[in-house]
């Protein structure tokens, strides 16, 4: 596969920058979140957004769909939601006097699915998304239906009011490229929101690229060069999440999977494209690592008792694992910060 050239990357970067600007007009004060969401989209990954209600998660997804001119459907997950409500149901219809089952596509048949409060649905319903997320197709009554391309699932979950919820199983969590934490806005951002928004009205979003352009950018993202040393860094990072493989690993009960390594590589490529670079770098990996790894590791009981979070452990891990594989002798003193 031919690697992306600087010219191609620069062209694509222009579109991506436009998308970034468009979304920044939708959601104020969440530049990093928007950057990561676009990174996830360019990586063709699914994103789990975790945050309190009213922080603009749904608005972000809507804005993304409008900016990309993609079809979007929103599913509000509730305990009584059934798998068929997502994937679609066969409906008995009469054609020429004959009755036959006709597949009625569910809301999953769209480009962007907004799975709102995904942890409120039953595990059975949650698992209905598994095949769709991974295989990008749905099988109903033995018949497989491909999902439109591109296909993204942007799920949200509320970290409070956990009573009556069903935490997502590890297998399903692993299928999300990123788990992003939507934080509250500061005073200046709130002031900006108050000045520029009105309750009940949706912001105007300009379409920045069509489907073909998006396809081209997505294809180009895959052609971004990943140097061997960066791949080595990713491998060492993922390996370090396992107990006994690093100092930080002692706080981790179960480490990240190879899928996490692939996710890191894909998102590093996407970020390199966003920065109009034809190759990924250590810094790209470091930037996306918390979002990729935080939902893929399970902390030790003792670490949780000590008040450590996944973010803390990953931060320690990133500090611990050096960019270059070779150690520095003790007769030399390191002057550069990783």
């Amino acid at each position: 596969m031919e690697h992306a050239s600087e010219t191609e990357v620069t062209d694509a970067g222009t579109h991506v920058r436009s998308l970034l600007n468009a979304l920044n007009q939708v959601l104020f004060g969440q530049e990093e979140l928007i950057e990561l969401v676009i990174t996830g989209v360019l990586s063709r990954g699914h994103i789990l957004l975790e945050g309190l209600p009213g922080l603009g998660k749904t608005e972000l997804v809507k804005g993304l769909s409008r900016a990309l001119l993609l079809d979007t459907k929103r599913v509000q997950f509730t305990p009584d939601l059934l798998p068929g409500d997502i994937t679609g149901n066969p409906v008995l219809q009469e054609f020429d006097g004959k009755r036959q089952f006709v597949f009625q596509p569910g809301p999953v048949f769209t480009n962007i699915v907004l799975a709102d409060e995904i942890n409120r649905a039953s595990p059975k319903t949650q698992s209905a998304l598994l095949e769709a997320m991974q295989e990008r197709r749905v099988t109903v009554l033995g018949e497989t239906h491909s999902l439109p391309d591109p296909f993204f699932v942007l799920a949200t979950q509320n970290p409070i009011e956990l009573e009556g919820t069903y935490p997502l199983p590890e297998a399903q969590l692993d299928r999300f490229l990123f788990k992003l934490e939507v934080t509250r806005n500061d005073v200046r951002t709130l002031e900006r929101i108050v000045n520029h928004r009105e309750l009940g009205s949706e912001p105007e979003v300009q379409t920045v690229m069509d489907a073909d352009t998006l396809d081209g950018v997505l294809a180009l993202t895959r052609r971004i060069f990943l140097p061997e040393v960066v791949a080595n860094y990713i491998a060492r990072l993922v390996d370090g999440t396992h107990p006994g493989q690093s100092n930080s690993g002692k706080n981790i009960k179960y480490g990240a999977s190879p899928r996490a390594a692939l996710s890191l590589a894909a998102s590093a490529r996407a970020r390199a494209l966003m920065n109009e670079r034809p190759h990924a770098s250590f810094e790209d990996v470091k930037f996306v690592a918390p979002s990729v790894l935080r939902h893929r590791i399970i902390l030790e009981y003792n670490a949780r008792v000590e008040g450590l979070t996944s973010n803390d452990v990953i931060a320690d891990l990133l500090e611990e694992i050096p960019f270059q594989g070779g150690a520095t002798p003790k007769t030399l003193q390191s002057t550069a910060s990783a």
């Binding site: 040393v229 960066v230 190759h279 770098s281 250590f282 270059q324 550069a336 990783a338």
Partner: peptide, 15 residues
């Protein structure tokens, strides 16, 4: 690699 990491060259040398 050590040089590009230290000088924050974003792996330009490796590439």
């Amino acid at each position: 690699v050590r040089l590009e990491a230290s000088m924050k060259m974003r792996n330009a040398l490796s590439a």
